[in-house]
């Protein structure tokens, strides 16, 4: 079984994000990146499926050359090789373009499964998997918390409101990983050493013949409103009720 799996890099969620002065984006100088946690779940699942069913796990990502480090982390966990589509910076993509790039990679690689994180924790768009399946006209199973392969079908348990839904989807298919799908392994030292020798193909976006025009225009970034100070009451219940009515308009 051949699996394509995504490894997106995201800004360190614990880093203090600063906006550019013109509000066109965030300042990326000195910013650290980490693999998107949901992609890590997808990679772990790809590796587990590979351990049972054999085949190949190919890690794909998009971005500048230093995204190789993110792919390399997945190779250290045990994936076999990587593909990096270069020529686009992080801010030059929207979910639609990413899905169309992945659709091209799908056509080149013809995998049985395309695994993705359900969303990236920076943009939180949660659209790429769904768009990708639509462009490829294949089945999709998003928010997977369990994946089993039976013959030519993937049996996927999905986390939905109020419970779990179990669906069967014919392969090839797109599956997006939810948090409870698995616990990603740590990259081992032998894995990290071996990853150095694994190949990462860089493909220039221009050679894919894709229209890189974005469908989503980012108008501006704003910082969240800073929290105002609290109010201390020294009076009685009547005063509190009055203020909740008149000032907070909570009751």
């Amino acid at each position: 079984m051949k699996i394509l799996v995504t490894a997106k890099r995201v800004t360190d969620p614990n880093a203090k994000i600063k906006l550019k002065s013109d509000k066109s984006g965030i300042q990326t100088d000195g910013l650290e990146y980490k693999p998107n946690p949901f992609c890590e779940n997808a990679i772990e699942e790809a590796l587990r499926l590979n351990e049972t069913h054999g085949g190949e796990v190919v890690v794909v990502s998009i971005g500048p050359s230093d995204v190789q480090a993110t792919i390399r982390t997945a190779l250290a966990m045990g994936a076999h090789r990587g593909i990096l589509v270069t020529g686009l910076d992080d801010h030059q993509m929207d979910s639609d373009l990413v899905a169309r790039v992945f659709a091209e990679l799908y056509k080149r690689e013809r995998p049985d499964l395309f695994l993705l994180g359900k969303q990236a924790i920076d943009g939180d768009s949660n659209q790429v998997g769904q768009l990708l399946a639509e462009y490829l006209e294949i089945g999709q199973a998003c928010f997977a918390s369990k994946v089993e392969i039976h013959g030519s079908e993937a049996i996927v348990t999905r986390e939905v409101d109020g419970g779990l839904e179990k669906i069967a989807v014919g392969m090839p298919a797109v599956i997006t990983a939810d948090l409870r799908l698995n616990e990603p392994r740590y990259a081992s030292l032998p894995g990290i050493v071996k990853a150095r020798k694994k190949s990462i193909d860089e493909i220039d976006i221009r050679s894919l013949g894709i229209d890189t025009h974005l469908k989503v225009e980012t108008v501006a970034y704003e910082e969240p409103k800073t929290r105002g100070g609290g109010v201390t009451f020294v009076g009685g219940v009547d005063e509190l009720v009055g203020k909740l009515k008149s000032e907070a308009k909570a009751i």
Partner: peptide, 14 residues
Amino acid sequence: SEEEIQIRNAVRAM
């Protein structure tokens, strides 16, 4: 090296 940083980060995460 990138490999040294990767090793450090893996142990740090563990």
